[in-house]
């Protein structure tokens, strides 16, 4: 030991002061130094992680909202198309109905008219027939009356009568 240089031989005074100084700096830094830095860094890490997960959630939510809005839009469009289709069908139906009805009505009217015309015709025919019969009777009367006078006049008369009748 005697020949060794002093840096190789532990010295009590140096050991003592080193111990005291090291304990002081250790206690000070362990209390006021490192924990604050480490805590701050760890909190920052947590904050960043949290922010990231929040952002991810928000993104997911946004994507959900977008999908939903798209779905709603699509549904609305489908409904619109459906309504338009239905409306068109209804319109077509109404028009068809109206047309059918009108046709029916028209046919009915026509039939009625035909019937009436038929009836009128019947009446008129009957009327004519009676009138013709009457006329015929009258003519026949007159003819018969004239015949009895002379033939010439008789013929002239009949012609005139017929002319009249026409």
């Amino acid at each position: 030991m005697g020949n060794l240089p002093s840096i190789l031989t532990p010295d009590f005074g140096l050991l003592f002061w080193m111990l005291v100084s090291f304990l002081v700096v250790f206690l000070l830094l362990a209390k006021f130094g490192f924990p604050a830095i480490i805590k701050a860094v760890e909190e920052r890490k947590n904050f960043i992680d949290e922010s990231l997960s929040k952002a991810r959630q928000a993104n997911e939510k946004l994507a959900g909202i977008q999908a939903e809005s798209e779905k709603i839009l699509r549904e609305a469009r489908e409904q619109q198309a459906q309504i338009i289709k239905e409306a068109m069908a209804t319109r077509d139906g109404i028009i068809q109905d109206a047309r059918d009805k009108a046709q029916l009505e028209g046919r009915n009217l026509l039939d009625e008219a035909k019937k009436q015309i038929e009836a009128e015709k019947e009446v008129a025919l009957r009327d004519i027939r009676t009138q013709v019969a009457d006329l015929s009777v009258q003519i026949a009367e007159k003819v018969i009356r004239q015949q009895l006078l002379h033939d010439d006049e008789q013929e002239k008369f009949i012609a005139r009568m017929l002319e009249d009748v026409k």
Binding site: W17, V25, F32, I37
Partner: peptide, 25 residues
């Protein structure tokens, strides 16, 4: 228990450490 050159150097080093870390913290 003399305050030797090495002891003073340790104190200076400790002062440097405290000056770095305490304001930082």
């Amino acid at each position: 228990l003399s305050i030797t050159k090495d002891v003073l150097q340790i104190w200076i080093n400790i002062a440097v450490m405290l000056l770095i870390f305490i304001p930082c913290a």
